[in-house]
Design a protein around this nucleic acid. Sequence first.
DNA 1: GTACATTCAATTGCGAACAATTAAATGTGA
DNA 2: TCACATTTAATTGTTCGCAATTGAATGTAC
Lengths: 152, 152
Amino acid sequence: MPRKLSALDPQRLDNQICFAVYSAAHAFNRVYKPLLDRLGLTYPQYLVMLVLWERDDVPVKDIGEKLFLDSGTLTPLLKRLEAAHLVKRTRSREDERQVLIALTPQGHALKEKARAVPHSILAASDCSVSELVAMKDEIVALRDRLNAVIGE
Amino acid sequence: MPRKLSALDPQRLDNQICFAVYSAAHAFNRVYKPLLDRLGLTYPQYLVMLVLWERDDVPVKDIGEKLFLDSGTLTPLLKRLEAAHLVKRTRSREDERQVLIALTPQGHALKEKARAVPHSILAASDCSVSELVAMKDEIVALRDRLNAVIGE
DNA sequence: GTACATTCAATTGCGAACAATTAAATGTGA
DNA sequence: TCACATTTAATTGTTCGCAATTGAATGTAC
C-alpha cells in the first residue's frame, strides 16, 4: 500500500476512533486526578458518588446499570467508600439478595466540596459548553449503539 | 434547584462528557473482546501490536509516547507479548538504557489475521465512515487540549 | 409444596493503569 | 576527570475492570 493512502488505512492507530476514545478517557482521568485527590476519591468512586448524590439508598445493581459496571468492580469499590465513611451498606429487608447503598452525612457533605469539579474540567477542555454538549450527545449515541450490538 | 433545570446541572452524571467518553471506551472494549480473543490479545496489547505493525524495532519509550502509557504499564504487558512469542525484547547496543521491541515472525503474521477487526468495529458502530472520522478528529482535538493542560 | 430456574452480591484470578521509587546508563559542566 | 543531573526501564503497591464461579434469596411451574 502506498504511503499516501495511509490516511485511509483502517489498520493504522491514528485512524481508529476507539483509540481516540481510549486515550481521551485516560487524558480526562489525568486531569481529574489532582482535583479528586483533594476529595479523597478516585474517578470511578467519584462516578458512584455522582449517582448517589442524585438518588440515595439504591441497590448495587442500580448503580451498576447506570455506570455499566458489575458487582466484581463495585463490591470492593463500595467497601472502600464505606471504609472512608462516605456510604453505608445494608441488606434490604424486603429482598435480602440486595445490598442498599446510602450516603452518610459526610457523603452528603462531600457534594458541596465537589461542586467546583465540573467547572475545572470545563476550563481544561478549553471548549464552549455547547460544543461539549454536542460532542457528548454524539459519543453517548455511539456508546448506546455499541452496547446494543453486545446485547445482540 | 427545580427539576426542569437538571439538564443544565453540571453535577449530574448524564451531563458530563467525561462519563460519556469513559463509558464509550468500555463499550468499545466489550465489542473488541470476542474479536481479540481469537487473536489471543487484550485491547491494550492490540494497540501495542498496531504500533509495531507500523514500525518495528522501537524502544519502549516510543511505544509509550504513542499510546500515552508509561513503563509501569508497558513492561509487564510486553513481557506477556514476549511470552506469547509475538515480540522480542533486546537491550540496545548503542544506548543500553533502551530496550528495543521487535516483532517475531508470528508477530508479523498476526497482522493478516487482524485485518478484519477494524471492519467489524465499523459495523458495530452502525455509522458512516465520514461521521466516525469527524467524531474521531473532535475527540483527538479534545484529548490533546486536555493533555496540554496536564503539561501546564 | 416441591423441583427448577433466576436474581443478586460476593469472591477469585488476571490484566491493565499509574504513582513512586530504584538502578543503571548516559549526558553535562566545572 | 569527576560530580551531578537526566534518561530509561524495571519494580512495588493500590485501584479498576471483567470473566467465571459461588451461595443465598426469590420466583415459577408443575
